[in-house]
């Protein structure tokens, strides 16, 4: 689907007044990935908002990325409870497995690894979100396994 059409669909689904902007951006972020300049231009123009305004709104929210992200966003909880349960080991395992550092995206554009604030599963840390899916009580191995399974599903081999 073209950007313009996707944006149109998202607006039709959400409504086109200002209070629907978040919903529009959320739908597009999940359908098209990164909120690129081309996408936000389209959103602004179709909703009759200033482009900067739409950009400013998106950048307030850490899940509405405007910089390139992979197909899968891996967000490891950085809160103290998960930290105490050794989330750093999980992060390092993923960094080594994916050959990227926190904040980066794999070359194939498949995974972005970030840390995020409290995911609300403090009693079963460490936890991470992979897109909208939550994974709890991680170990370095189980985290890597989750990623490997996604790779298999995606039919990508290294």
């Amino acid at each position: 689907m073209s950007i313009s059409l996707s944006v149109k669909t998202a607006i039709e689904e959400s409504g086109n007044s200002r209070e629907n902007l978040m919903s529009v951006l959320q739908i597009i972020r999940s359908d098209l990935g990164t909120l690129s300049p081309a996408i936000l231009t389209e959103v602004a123009d179709q909703m009759g908002l200033s482009r900067a305004d739409v950009y400013g709104t998106a950048t307030f929210y850490s899940f509405l990325e405007t910089t390139p992200v992979g197909k899968y966003s891996i967000r490891i909880c950085r809160s103290i409870s998960c930290d105490m349960k050794n989330k750093n080991a999980v992060r390092e395992a993923l960094e080594n497995h994916l050959f990227i550092k926190k904040g980066e995206t794999t070359k194939d554009g498949m995974f972005t690894l970030t840390e995020t604030n409290c995911l609300g599963h403090c009693h079963e840390g460490p936890v991470m979100l992979v897109n909208d899916e939550i994974h709890t009580e991680l170990t370095p191995d189980s985290a890597v396994k989750i990623i490997e399974e996604i790779r298999i599903r995606e039919g990508v081999d290294e």
Binding site: T41, L49, S50, A52, Y55, G56
Partner: peptide, 19 residues
Amino acid sequence: IGALTMSGKGEHAKVSTFF
């Protein structure tokens, strides 16, 4: 016109143009 906006939040909040 809305050429300017606040972007980012917290310590990263700043006055920005589109991207």
